[in-house]
């Protein structure tokens, strides 16, 4: 059956009237903060304690917006007659956010978990030069990095936790053995404890979650 003449006109009126009764979708941004999804790509934070100046991020950056300067320091030998060690010391780490295209490749390639996404996005400047964030500013962004999202139910146990658990079980077994045999010297015990502590220590910074409010946060957030 052909539609009634004018039914399309009535349908159009119905659509606009229905839309009027629904809530509008406008986000009143400066008045209310947006509800951002996890993994929002706002700004990049640098956890410089983890950085080894391997330069992978700077080399992979498609925009060449990461600047790294470093120098080499020699650490004297730990034992007499041993070999001297040399390590890289970070002098400058800067990201030019006026060039950055937020691809996240630097964060993906960092082998030491020194770079993180932060959802903060309100860092507009009146001078484009101010968009180059130096290492102290990048370090400050770390306080805004949220805790990693929880694993899916039934997911494989993270390697760090597996190692820590294994070490703890080994330690418990040793302590049990030591208690059963008090005469035996506990020579291996400190070593085992140290191993367990190393395994428990996550590579991510412990304070890098939003819940930690006693830490200084960057200016302009409130």
């Amino acid at each position: 059956m052909a539609p009634l003449p004018g039914s399309g006109l009535a349908k159009g009126l119905a659509v606009t009237l229905r839309t009027m009764t629904k809530r509008s979708v406008t986000a009143q941004y400066p008045d209310t903060q947006p509800d951002l999804p996890p993994r929002t790509r706002g700004v990049i934070g640098l956890f410089e304690e983890n950085c080894t100046v391997c330069m992978l991020c700077a080399r992979e950056c498609p925009d060449w917006c990461i600047y790294i300067d470093s120098h080499k320091e020699t650490i004297p030998a730990a034992t007499p007659g041993g070999r001297e060690r040399s390590r890289n010391v970070l002098d400058r780490f800067a990201i030019d956010f006026s060039l950055c295209m937020y691809c996240g490749i630097c964060i993906e390639v960092c082998p030491f978990d020194a770079l993180f996404w932060s959802p903060e996005f309100e860092y507009a400047e009146t001078d484009i030069h101010d968009l180059t964030h130096e290492r102290d500013k990048l370090r400050e962004w770390m306080w805004t990095v949220p805790a990693p999202p929880a694993l899916d139910p039934g997911a494989e146990e993270p390697k760090e936790i597996a190692a820590a658990r294994k070490a703890a079980e080994k330690l418990a077994a040793q302590q049990q053995a030591a208690a059963a045999e008090p005469a035996a010297p506990a020579a291996t015990e400190p070593h085992a404890r140290e191993q367990a502590r190393a395994a428990e220590q996550p590579t991510r910074p412990a304070g890098a979650s939003k819940q930690q409010t006693d830490q200084p946060r960057q200016e302009g957030r409130e």
């Binding site: 606009t16 009027m20 979708v25 009143q28």
Partner: peptide, 13 residues
């Protein structure tokens, strides 16, 4: 206001 809400907006605020 009516036009805004019919288009899913808020209009002048």
């Amino acid at each position: 206001k009516v036009m805004a809400h019919m288009q899913g907006r808020l209009g002048p605020m």
